[in-house]
Each structure stands twice: as structure tokens, then as C-alpha cells.
Amino acid sequence: MSLNFRSMFVLAAAAILLGGCATPVQQRIDLADNYFLSSKAKGGKVGVVMAELPKPDTAFPGANCLLCLGVANGMHSALNKEVQTFSTAELKPLPLDVVALLKKRGLDVVLIDEPLKIDALPDLDARGAANKSRKNFTSLKTKYNVDRLFVVHFTALGVWRSYSAYVPTDPPKAVVVGNASLIDLSTHSLEWHLPVNVSRTAVGDWDEAPNFPGLTNAYYQVLETGMDLIKKPFLQ
């Protein structure tokens, strides 16, 4: 019985947290009052980019041993297979939408039309600086001649089900997890940062193999909600 990648990731993340080596979670940072009227907003060019999208998958947080994960995967083999067919195409217009919104607010904006390999960027030592980027984006500043960077980074998509060891504790939920940031590339300070963590259960019975229509609908609904959350602060 094989373990899917997402479940292995959850197990590894739990081990890191227990070991005390986890990076503190970046908290939400709202735009400053009258941000779009400020000289800061009007000056320089903003690049908009989206990180490479993860593949939709299942995860079973709380099934925190290899045997537990094996049992969870075995119980949900049909769901695992279906979730891995879910599309991410609905997210791809988001950078263009952000560009249009920022232009309407009077900013000088350019679309960086290639997926960002964010894990390949060097880390930025932001210890003691809670409002700084965790990655160094200097290479993009130079390559695209931008002064600030609007980064959309989805880290997990798919369906999760909470467990207590071998026992499921909740129905499965469609999830979208990630964040979006507006970064001043001269200092790597965060002018705005929004964690995104949206989940939704199926309406009615979720366990309708092989296509799981309730969870499938919930998945595409959380994608839409996640995108709306990112765009909302920039609407006029």
C-alpha cells in the first residue's frame, strides 16, 4: 500500500514542528490606510507573478504514523485517484485579474508571465523581522526591472480529512491553502500579506465514488473563494 506525496508531506511537517525547527507563520498584514494615494504606491513598477501550482492531492492530518497513513490511504483509494484528476486551470487567470485591478488603482504594473519556481529562490534570513519576505526575490527585480512584487503562492490544493491516528474525525473537506504578498524589493519588507486557507465540505453525502460530485463541486468553490479573497483588497 503506497502513501501519497501529500500525506508524506504532512507527516514530515509534523515531525519538524515537534522538533522545534519550524519557521514562525507569517501573520496577515493589511494595506496601509490610503495606500493607493501614497507616493509609495505611485512610485516604481509592480511585477505580478504566480508560483508554480501544486498538484491537487489528498492529505490526512492527524494520521501521524506510517501505518496510520497507510490505513487512511487504503480507505480512500478511490478518492485519492479522483482528486489527482482535479484541474488547476481555474486559478491561472488570477495574475491577469490582479494586473487589471492594480492598473485601475493607478499603479504601473507588469505581468510576469511564467510560473515562479519559488523553492529554487534563495532563502532570506528574516529572523527577528516578522514583516519581511522569507525568500530573496532580487533576481526578479533585476530581470524584470520591477520595484515591488505581487506574489501569489498556493501551497496545497485538493481534499483533506482529519484523523486521530487510525480514526477519521471529520468528513473530508476541499481545501485551498497558500498566501499572497506585495513585497518592496529594495528591503524585502511586506507591504501586504494575506494567508489563504479555505475549506468546504460536500453538500449532502460526500462518499459517492468514483467521481465524488459533492467534493468535486466543493473543490471548485474553494478555488473561487480563494481567488476572491486575494482580489478583494484591490477592488475599487
Rank of each mutant, 00 (worst) to 15 (best):
T216E: 04
F86Y: 15
E208Q: 13
L101T: 02
I230L: 05
I230W: 06
V198M: 06
D184G: 12
F60P: 04
T138K: 12
C68P: 02
V159K: 01
K232D: 08
K92A: 15
V198A: 06
K55Q: 14
L94I: 02
L182H: 03
P61C: 03
R134V: 08
V109A: 08
S189D: 13
L11D: 00
K173N: 09
F150L: 11
V151W: 00
D147Q: 07
V177G: 09
C65F: 05
S139G: 14
A130S: 13
A13E: 14
P54F: 01
C65D: 11
V198Q: 05
D205V: 10
L3R: 12
K40W: 00
S199D: 11
E82H: 12
Q26E: 09
E90F: 12
L66A: 14
G204N: 02
P24M: 00
R6F: 08
M8R: 11
Q84I: 01
S77V: 09
L111K: 15
R105K: 15
Y166N: 10
P93Q: 11
L157G: 06
N73I: 05
F137N: 04
S164R: 15
L3N: 10
C65K: 08
A126M: 13
D123C: 00
V175E: 02
T58G: 07
F60Y: 15
Q221V: 06
Y163H: 12
S189C: 12
Y219I: 09
L157M: 06
L53E: 08
P115I: 07
K45Y: 00
D113Y: 07
Y144R: 14
S77G: 11
G44L: 03
L140P: 08
G178T: 12
D207K: 08
P61T: 02
G19V: 06
T23M: 09
K232L: 07
I16N: 01
K143T: 14
A180H: 04
G128T: 07
A78S: 15
D108W: 09
V222W: 01
A202V: 02
K135H: 09
L124V: 12
V167R: 14
S133V: 01
L235H: 13
R200W: 05
N211R: 03
V146K: 09
F150W: 09
N73S: 00
V177S: 11
D57Q: 10
Q27D: 15
K42N: 15
C68L: 03
I183F: 07
P56D: 05
V98P: 11
D170Y: 12
V110R: 10
N64V: 06
T169G: 04
L96S: 15
